[in-house]
Amino acid sequence: MKILSFFLILGLAFGQDDTTSKESSTKDSKPKKEEKKKTSKKNPDDIGERDVGKGVNWYSIEKEIALGKGLAQDIERSAKIVDDPVISEYVSRLGQNLVRNSDAKVPFTIKVVDSEEINAFALPGGFFFVNTGLILAADTEAEVAGVMGHEIAHIAARHGTRGATRGQIANLATIPLIFMGGWAGFGIRQAAQVMIPAGFLYFSRSFEREADMLGLQYMYKAGYDPGAFVDFFEKLQAKEKRKPGTISKIFSSHPPTDDRVTTAQSNIQSMLKERPEYVVTTSEFQDVKARLQSMHNRRKLDPQDPNRPRLRRKPGDGTTTVEDENGKKTKTDEDERPTLKRRPSDKDDK
């Protein structure tokens, strides 16, 4: 019995080992799961397959879109939106082409604001505005694409709601993502006449650097010359030299312009493979720019325009000719103020 028990135990032991071996063999024979493709923010070939907006964020995409929509409605009620179909359709089509070549995961609504300030600004959730002044200041379509690419990058990377989650922004409903450095910048504050404390309006420099990097990739993938992005910043530098202090205040929340130019040049060399040809500008861009210029000129000449330049005559400018009894002609000022003469005093009589 003892021997039988021994063999039974031994058999069970071997049986367990055999089962374990079979299970192990079965596991080994199962096909391995495909490893998830690694993507990089620095590789433009991975655009569309990566999540550049990942990070701690308490706002869902749906809530972000709702917030942006509410802000956009406020902007449209306050600012003057260009309703010229040629201009608005061109700018929207240019922007949507960049969006298709970006990491954005929300639909975009793009409109043009009638403002001479050089600016573009984007709201959370895909609501995007371009000032006419930006188009007039640009020499090429690629320069406009560079600015718009930067704004699209802010939305794709969800910088607004991520910044709010970090506690850097007190009230998301007052924060647009603006190329020129927040509401303290040029465009929308004047166009919409919205007064917001400047302390709540600045994005971190790391967000701005990321938007520069991603924006370069988006314009590159869309076929534009990424060097145009650098060209635009060099124009800003020239503006700063002509009128010191104007640009530096606007970019107080951004990396210094010199650094942005240097970094952009470095990113172009390290991330973007050189292509035999790029889109620099188009005849359509030139036509739209000429149309905008004509629109601005007509507004300045319109006598009904309350903002047109006015000449105000100073006292003494308007004169008339008066002929006395002897035929002598003299000029008198119609606007001349009355002259006060001192009455003779008693002392004068003495």
Rank of each mutant, 00 (worst) to 15 (best):
F251Q: 09
A264E: 11
S252R: 08
S283D: 15
K241L: 09
P226C: 04
K273T: 13
Q265H: 00
K273S: 12
E234D: 09
F232C: 13
Y224F: 15
M271Q: 14
S283P: 06
T263M: 12
S252T: 06
K249H: 05
Q269G: 03
R260Y: 13
D231L: 10
V230K: 08
V280C: 05
Y224H: 06
A228M: 03
Q286T: 04
A264Q: 10
A264D: 09
V261I: 15
P256T: 00
F285M: 07
H254L: 05
V280I: 13
Q269S: 10
F229M: 10
P255E: 03
P255C: 06
G227H: 12
D258W: 00
H254K: 02
D258E: 14
A238T: 06
K273I: 06
T263C: 02
K249R: 11
R260W: 13
F229N: 12
D225A: 11
S253D: 14
D231K: 14
P276E: 13
H254C: 01
T257K: 01
F229Q: 07
I247F: 07
D231Q: 14
T257F: 00
L272A: 05
F251Y: 14
N267E: 08
T282N: 10
Q237K: 11
K239M: 13
Q269H: 07
I268F: 10
Y224N: 03
S248P: 02
T257D: 10
Q269E: 13
K273Y: 01
K249Q: 13
K241H: 03
L236I: 08
T262Q: 14
P244N: 01
Y278F: 15
K239T: 10
S266Q: 14
R275K: 15
P255D: 04
Q269Y: 02
A238I: 00
K239G: 05
V279G: 07
Q265Y: 02
N267C: 02
G227Q: 12
Y278E: 10
K243T: 07
P276G: 10
G227P: 00
H254S: 03
P226I: 01
A222H: 05
K249E: 11
V230I: 15
F233L: 14
I247Y: 06
E240A: 09
Q265V: 04
F233V: 03
L272S: 09
M271F: 11
A222Y: 04
V280E: 12
F233W: 15
H254N: 05
V261M: 11
D259T: 07
S270Y: 03
F232M: 15
